[in-house]
Design a protein around this nucleic acid. Sequence first.
DNA 1: ATATGTGTTGAT
DNA 2: TCAACACATATG
Length: 352
Amino acid sequence: MDYSCIDDNTSNTSETLSMSKKTPPQAAMRLYRMGSGGSSVVLDLENGVETESSRKLPSSKFKGVVPQPNGRWGAQIYEKHQRVWLGTFNEEEEAAASYDIAARRFRGRDAVTNFKSPASDAESAFLEAHSKAEIVDMLRKHTYADELRQSERKFLDGDGNGKKRRESKTTVTNENDGVLREVLFEKAVTPSDVGKLNRLVIPKQHAEKHFPLPVTVTPSPTKGVLINLEDRTGKVWRFRYSYWNSSQSYVLTKGWSRFVKEKNLRAGDVVCFERSSGPDQQLYIDWKVRSGIEKTTSVQTVVRLFGVNIFNATTNANTNDAVGESGSKKRSREVDLFALGCSKKQAIINVL
DNA sequence: ATATGTGTTGAT
DNA sequence: TCAACACATATG
């Protein structure tokens, strides 16, 4: 159940998100596309004329590689009917290679790939030692090569303890079995928590007890931190957690509205925060429909892979039933707040 | 402003 | 599964 890496962006380092974006060097390119989407305008630099003709993006000859409107290349792989975005690259080959790595991690050593490379034993070991989410994260951040190199160095350093920090979870089956979870606290969401404010107020007492914010030492007046919380489906949500001086309250902001939307949270419903008691202090978030009331037709968007779950699906018929169906919104009421970056990444909470 | 990655869909 | 493509968001 890891694979919670389907999307997400940023995984960073310090308080603010910062992706490893680089300026696209599409200079050498003959055709320069502008704008986004397929409706991009193409400028033929040869003649300096804008040709209305070729509005289409050049498809890649590599598997898992898709063109980006800005001339760069995206890499993606599918699993369980869902696309797992592997990032964008300047070179088509880089994207293809990234796909290959993901393919091996997701589908095994002899997965169909773009390039031959059977993958060394060392690399295979490396792949197996990391969750899909971690590998995807490395690909997206373009740090795979480095991490692989480092792991190999460590391996040679003697210390043959290849197992030092067993990753939190894994792939195919839930390794979470047996691992205990401690409920940190619960909160019945208020109307404003699920309204257009795009924020969840964390009761101060709980916030200070369980989510101590690294003192506003940072240069910038507390930008907050990003925390990852896994839900019952294995999907990992990333929220910005910060303190609002104005209201003297701790809040989850960025990413929260997406959660509200996907889980179709309504005022009165309860969100529960838990933490793995294992060495990895993985955090979890769960929700329950307001006790008593029958929830409307909520069928959420949840991605269900292996239905790991514990939890009473009181009113929801959501577990691991019907397939796909993601995307369909069945809200009776309007809703909408544009959703901000959510994410599903796995990895332990990083207080950046 | 524009780059990135998602929503969708039709085709394997 | 996969990619095309249109477009919503994120990011600088």
